[in-house]
Structures are given as C-alpha cells and as structure tokens.
Design a protein around this nucleic acid. Structure first.
Length: 614
RNA sequence: GCCGACGUAGCUCAAUUGGCAGAGCAAUGCUCUUGUAAAGCAUAGGUUAUGGGUUCAAGUCCCAUCGUCGGCUCCA
C-alpha cells in the first residue's frame, strides 16, 4: 500500500512542524492555567497528537475519597484563562538538568518523578515511548513560572499560538501509562490551528464526520437497529441492511468459489472442552459469554470458528492430495466485550466473520498466503476502499500471551514477510499485535472520524494443528503436520458494513444499494405502469420499489434523494405512451427519457461490473 | 469495566426559579391528480428509560438500575 509511506513521511514532518510546536506549547499553557485553578494538581503527560493535544492531570480526591474531575464550567474557565496567558507574551526556555537536579525540581510531582526514574533507567521517555539508553540529563522547558519535564520542541513565545485558534474539546478519564490497573487521571483534549479560520475548518470537518456516522445513517436509511431488550451489542439487521450484507456475502462467496474454497456450515455453540483443547478458553475467558451448563455439560457460545473447522478437517484421514483444503463459512461468533467498548456496528457482541481456514502443507504456505492477500486486495479494490494500511503483527517475546515455540513464530513471520515482499506491499511491523497462536497481516482502515479499524486479516498458525494433532499422509507415505491459515477479508460483516456506510456516506455503489431504483408515478393514474416496469426490472434481478405514497412527485423525489437511491425513474403520461422511464440519478442529474430496455441494459452492465459511478 | 455528559411521541427537539407535557416531520383518514428535493385539512400518538425517595406539587431535585454518547482500557 503506497499510502503508508506517505503517511509516515507526513508524520515525521508533523513532528518537526510549527503546528506540532504550537500544539505542544498549547499543552504547556493549558497546564499552567490548570495549575492556577487547581494548585494541588499533579501533572502527568501532555503531548501533541494528531489534530491537537491533551494533558493528563491528577486532581486528587474529595472528602468522600472520589476523584476530583473537571466540570464543563472548569473547562470553559481554563480555556478563557489559557487565551489570556497566550496573549501575555512569555518566552519558552529550554534547559537541561542532571537526574538529581530534576528529582529535586519535581519533588512534589510524583508522575514526573516516575518518568525521571524511567529515563534514568533507560526504559521510556517522557512521552511514554521506549528508549534504548539510560540518560544522564533530562530536558526541561520553562515559560513564566511553569516548568515541565520536556524535550520540546516548542514555539519561542506563547504569542505564536493564536488565542483565537485554540479550543478545548472535552475531558475524559485516562489511565496513567495507559494501564487500567493504575490511577485514572483526568485528561483534557484541546486543539490548536495556525489561525481562527483553520480552527473553524477543523470544527466543521468534525461536524461533517458526525453527519456520516454509520449509526446515524443506519437509522436514517433503515439498515440496522439495536434493541436494548434483545441485548446491547447485538444488532438486528433490517431488510435494507440485510440486502446490503447479503450482497457482500454473495460477492465474496463467488470470489471464493473461483479460488477453490469449499463451504461448510457449523453451529454457533460448542462444548467448553473444545475451546480448552484449542487453547482459546484461558486466553479469552473474560471476554466470553459465560458457559451454558446443560445436564452437567458445559457449552460455550462460540467466540471463534476455528475449532469447528478443525473438527471438519479431522473428520476423515487427509492426504497431501487434499491440500490445500480451504473451508469457508460466514460464521457467527459471540464475544462479551466490555460495555464501554461497544460502538454501533463496528464493535459488537455478536458478529459474523467471513471466515476461512486453509489447511496447507508447509511447502504450500507461502503461495497460499500470497493468494489470500491477493483475494483481500481484490475485495477491497472492488468495493472501492482506499484508506488502508497493512500491519504485520508479531508476538512479544516478553509477554506470556503467546503460545508455541520460537521456531514456529519465526517460520510464520518469515512466510508473511516473503509473501508481502513478493507482492511489493508496504506494511508496518508491530510487536505484540499477533494472535495468540501465530503472527498475522492485518488490513486497517481509517473511518470518517479518523479512527482506525482492523478489517481484513490473514494469520499463520502452526500451533492449533499441533494442539489438535492434525495430520495428512504425504507422497512419501509418512504422516505430516499441516499448517493453518486463518483469514477474513471483511473481518466481520458488521464492522465492514459499518465502515462501508461511512465510506460511502450511505450512497452505495449501484451493485450494493439496497434499493437500486425507485419508480415515481406522477399521479395515481400511472401507478399501474410503474408497477409493470418495476416487475420487469425485478425479473432481471434488480432491486426496485414503487413509491405509491399519496405524495406529490417532488416529495417522492426528495424522499428517494434522502434515501440515496441511485436511480429515480419518473413515469407519467409521456413515458407510459412511449414505453420509457424518465431517468434521474441521486447526483441530481435529469437524464431524460430512456426506453425501459435501454435503462435496464445500462443498469445491469454497471451492476455486473461493480461500477461505483452511475 | 473506569471517568464525564445524557435519556421527553417512530424521528428531530421544546417545556422560565419545581406549578395543566408541546411543536415539526413521520403515521392514519379526507381533499387535490400533480413533470424532477417537502400540497392542504383533520385524526391519532406519552406511566417524560425503569424502580424508589423528597415535596402541597417532580420531565425538572436526590438515590439505584438499565441504556445512549465522548474518551480511557480492551479488540481473537
């Protein structure tokens, strides 16, 4: 993905940019304002981030022992004070101190002391990033009476941050060092831009992003519904959403048939023993629905599909002639995510993975891996997704989260690297992002709100074949152990559709649109003709509705526009007499009358080619 | 799960310091028979998330539960 290099370069430039300095400096001035209002506040860290900055504070506890938090009024006051402080033109002065001097200077700032100790021991820097070497001196930045442990960079004078280009956005809790077992601090997020106009532009972009939020569009377009009575995180697919999802499923099924995948269908529950044997259970115990105890036997709502597919592999003796064996299923799984983690369709408790498990010989591994990546690229290209990056997730040798031998991991990572390099792909390598059973290559998409979502994934697995003692008979007549590839191009149908909604702002390409055309009869008199045309189009496989409401034509068009229906086919006396439809697209283009057959042929061609333009 | 904000009709939102729960859209009925983004009139729609409490009086104040939203954490 050529995208990624660009991003990395952009990030490097960002960290050296004036804007980055402004945001870093704004964080310091905000902390200064906070300290005025909360003199007892302890400072944690306050870095620039994409589009802004934050600073974390510990405000201590009230008489009842509850953490003191920022109110909305506090935020307004802090923001107002910050503006005043920016205008008073203080100079930012850098200097460095020995570790001991720094310990003295920050003696009543416990979080800073912890950072200083870690710098001295060479673990992490003041921003929390890993460093290689212990340091003997630490950087500090001072403006007025405010001093912070910091290596900069900053602007020279506070005035260089425009007071009218600063806005504090929100507060939230945030764990110290990102660790939920440690103190929860109070974070303030803010943003700074070079000037007021750019700030307003940014706020407008946020507003626009909210307008294309898939939860909002999902309601407006009648795609899905989440009922608290059914269960939070358990979406209900409405007819139009179901059509969209099934269309995607059909598309992938077809692509898989062409590539030698075989369908299987397996149940949504399995005995607990199955997951104990696979090793999934102890790893993910906390994020699973509790086992169902029936007559002394325990069953799990399945959190993944792999063990079921493995049992299919094991159902008969396998020969090298059977491999690669590619078993595919849209398999629904259940994971009890923490309540605060749920989010529309993109983070749910019951979802369907476009899952497949490939059982291959070690010799076939690399080639099969390449084919899977090519399938994923084909899927993304066809659907029109572009803002993706690829990530190679490896195990963290320090962590006990990962099973299997070092050789297994090495072989797996090696296979992925060879495959990705062979395809000339750009990818980042991230330690500690692997599955517990093996390394993986993930495809990560950025949504309208700039959040990143992992969609497609391909994983190499030497472990489960061992756990389940999988075998095949080789050409040599000996027993051999296959390797597994786990893969899901969409990742999950729920998440993928959620992202798809935002990507297209609800205006799906014709082939995916839940309703592809609406017939709009001008008066009651034309309803029969409209129905006749609709039926003709339906017989060719198109998804067509007739607007038989009592509305006037203008209102029917408005409704179809709001529903983002690709084609509006207006029919009145003229069309009925000539056997035509007056074609209008959602891009507000009146294309005039076309014979029904001509429109149909044109539309079917676009559908077949997965075209995104009408 | 944690921090904060919030929960009023199907949807979007009103309701002054605690004092009769409202509007637009959608729905239904009637009239109009209409040419490219909203016709008119009428009707119906509510245990103000749920449960408890304070008060002469609670949508409004307090407590709990459920849920939603923004973050944090997590994401097989």
């Amino acid at each position: 993905m050529a995208q990624e290099n660009g991003n990395e370069q952009a990030n490097e430039r960002y960290e050296e940019s004036e804007l980055y300095r402004m945001r870093h400096s704004a964080a310091h001035v905000m902390a200064e304002a906070v300290l005025e209002q909360f003199p007892e506040a302890k400072l944690a860290i306050g870095p620039p981030i994409e589009d802004g900055f934050y600073y974390d504070f510990d405000l201590g506890r009230d008489e009842e022992g509850r953490p003191i938090t920022f109110s909305e009024a506090d935020l307004e006051q802090i923001e107002a004070r910050m503006r005043q402080l920016l205008k008073k033109n203080a100079k930012f002065e850098a200097s460095s101190l020995s570790i001991d001097e720094a310990r003295g200077l920050f003696e009543d700032q416990p979080y800073k002391l912890e950072l200083i100790e870690e710098l001295a021991r060479g673990k992490v820097d003041e921003m929390g990033n890993a460093i290689a070497e212990p340091v003997s001196e630490v950087g500090i930045y001072r403006h007025r009476d405010f001093v912070d442990l910091c290596r900069g960079p900053h602007v020279s004078f506070t005035k260089q941050v425009k007071a009218n280009a600063v806005k504090l956005l929100r507060t939230s809790g945030a764990y110290w060092r990102g660790d939920e077992n440690r103190t929860q601090l109070q974070r303030i997020y803010g943003t700074v831009w070079p000037n007021r106009v750019e700030l307003e532009g940014y706020l407008k972009r946020l507003e626009e992003a909210r307008a294309r939020d898939h939860r909002r569009l999902g309601k407006q377009l009648g795609l899905f519904h989440i009922s608290p009575l059914v269960g939070t995180g358990l979406p209900l697919w409405l007819p139009k959403g179901a059509v969209l999802r099934e269309t995607l499923e059909q598309f992938l099924r077809q692509a898989q048939v062409e590539r030698g995948y075989l369908p299987v269908i397996t149940p949504h529950v399995g005995k607990l023993d199955l997951y104990i044997k696979s090793g999934h259970y102890p790893y993910y115990k906390e994020s699973q629905y509790a086992p169902l105890d029936m007559d002394g036997e325990e069953f799990l709502l399945r959190p993944m599909n792999c063990p079921h597919h493995i049992e299919i592999y094991r159902s008969e003796p396998r020969s090298y002639r059977d491999l690669p064996l590619r078993l595919a299923e849209f398999g629904t799984v259940y994971r009890y995510e923490q309540s605060g983690e749920l989010h529309g369709l993109t983070r749910v408790r019951g979802f369907t993975i476009d899952d497949s498990h490939l059982f291959v010989t070690p010799e076939q591994l690399e080639e099969e891996f390449v084919r899977v990546v090519q399938l994923i690229q084909y899927v993304f290209n066809t659907i029109g997704f572009s803002d993706f990056r690829a990530r190679l997730g490896t195990n963290d040798p320090e962590s006990d989260k990962y099973a299997g031998s070092p050789e297994m991991w090495e072989k797996g990572v090696d296979a992925i690297r060879k495959a990705a390099d062979g395809l000339s792909m750009n990818y980042s390598v991230e330690t500690g992002e692997a599955a517990f059973y093996g390394p993986k290559l993930d495809f990560i998409f950025r949504d309208a709100l700039k959040r990143e979502w992992q969609l497609g994934t391909v994983q190499v697995d030497f472990l489960l074949p061992e756990r389940f003692e999988l075998e095949y008979t080789g050409q040599d007549g000996e027993r051999h152990r296959p390797v597994m590839i786990h893969r899901a191009p969409f990742g999950s149908m729920e998440r993928f559709v959620g992202i798809l909604i935002e990507h297209y702002n609800g205006a799906f390409p014709l082939w995916l649109a839940p309703v592809q055309a609406v017939l709009i009869p001008i008066t009651d008199r034309h309803v029969d003709y409209a129905r006749q045309v609709a039926n003709q189009l339906r017989e060719s496989g198109m998804r067509v509705e007739v607007d038989e409401s009592g509305n006037r034509m203008g209102a029917k068009i408005r409704e179809a526009q709001l529903q983002k229906v690709p084609y509006m086919l207006v029919v009145g006396d003229r069309e009925e007499e000539s056997g035509t439809v007056a074609v209008r697209t959602r891009e507000e283009e009146d294309r005039g009358a076309l014979p029904v057959e001509e429109f149909q042929a044109h539309a079917l061609e676009l559908i077949a080619s997965h075209a995104s333009e009408l």
